[in-house]
Structures are given as structure tokens and as C-alpha cells.
């Protein structure tokens, strides 16, 4: 049934009004950047090549399409009773892989825009690492912040 629905969706895509036809893009958040439980006073770093804990987005578009990637990155996370926990990103904490391979990335600075060219397969991945730095007296609890990836067609 699910497959039938998907086929229907694809048929609808191809029979959409003329203006809606043409190239398409799909950007998926695949895996959230995950630090696991932290110890107060002990910085925790996740590298972009970590296959389990790095953040991952996938982009599906036409092969060789050029897109401009940029992140909106939080500098801290909000926790219980208005407390915060610093979060930092360094100049090589992001990586782009034309072939969706965590072992085949081109590093880039997630604090700056990056121009990416889609690979021949039309599916590419972006990986993200970062560092969380809890204070020695960091109150326990759950800390959250949102990471936004912007994909812009020039």
C-alpha cells in the first residue's frame, strides 16, 4: 500500500502543472549530531567522520547542480531553568561528499558558505561535527538547540 502511495505520488509529480515540472531537489536530515551523555567539565567533541555520532544531511538533486550550503549554528544550547551549554564549531567541522561516503569528504568551515557541486549520482551528503563544553558546575538535564542547513540555488 505504501509503495502504491509512493507510485501515486511520483505519478502526480510527473503530471503536475507545467510550471511545477523540471528539476527537483530534496534535502533530508538523516542523522542528528549526537554527543551522548556528557560529564561536567569535560568537553566532548564529535568529528565529522564519526559514522554514528556526526550529523548528516543528504541532498538529492540533478547531477552537477551547483548549490550554496550554509548553516545556522547555535553557539549554545538551552537547558533547565534558563541555563545554557556552549557549543562550538571549528573550521573543518563540516564535510561534503559527492558520493555519500563518510570516508570521502571534502572538509569545509560550517561557519561559512560552501559551494557544492552535486555528484554524478545526484545524491550527496553533508556531515557535521562539533564540540560541546559543559562547565564544571553544569546543571544536569537536557539541553537543546536547533541546527539549520540552508541550501540555496544561485
Amino acid at each position: 500500500m505504501r509503495r502504491f502511495a509512493l507510485v501515486l505520488g511520483l505519478v502526480a509529480l510527473t503530471s503536475a502543472p507545467a510550471a511545477a515540472q523540471g528539476r527537483k531537489i530534496r534535502v533530508d536530515g538523516i542523522r542528528a549530531l549526537a554527543f551522548g551523555p556528557l560529564l561536567a567539565g569535560a568537553p566532548a567533541k564529535v568529528v565529522r567522520t564519526d559514522p554514528a555520532r556526526s550529523g548528516q544531511f543528504d541532498i538529492t538533486a540533478q547531477n552537477n547542480d551547483l548549490v550554496i550550503l550554509s548553516f545556522s549554528l547555535p553557539t549554545s544550547m538551552s537547558g533547565p531553568a534558563g541555563t545554557s551549554l556552549p557549543l562550538t564549531f571549528s573550521g573543518s567541522d563540516a564535510g561534503f561528499s559527492q558520493v555519500q561516503s563518510i570516508g570521502d569528504q571534502v572538509a569545509f568551515d560550517p561557519r561559512q558558505a560552501y559551494v557544492a557541486t552535486m555528484g554524478q549520482q545526484g545524491v550527496s551528503s553533508i556531515f557535521l561535527g562539533g564540540t560541546a563544553t559543559p562547565a564544571f558546575n553544569q546543571p544536569p538535564g537536557v539541553y537543546t538547540a536547533t541546527i539549520t542547513l540552508t541550501v540555496m540555488y544561485p
Binding site: I25, L38, Y143, T146, V151
Partner: peptide, 25 residues
């Protein structure tokens, strides 16, 4: 995003939900 529950009351846990913004001309 589901955030890992703290193992005990002294644990600091993090949840970083992701969102996607696509900008078209």
C-alpha cells in the same frame, strides 16, 4: 527529535534537532 533520557539525575544530555531551509530563485 527524541532526546536521550539522562541515565541518572546527574547526567547532562543534548538534543540537536535539524531543520532544512531550501531557497529557490
Amino acid at each position: 527529535l527524541q532526546v536521550s533520557a539522562p541515565a541518572d539525575s546527574n547526567t547532562v544530555s543534548i538534543g540537536l534537532p535539524m531543520q532544512v531551509r531550501t531557497i529557490l530563485p
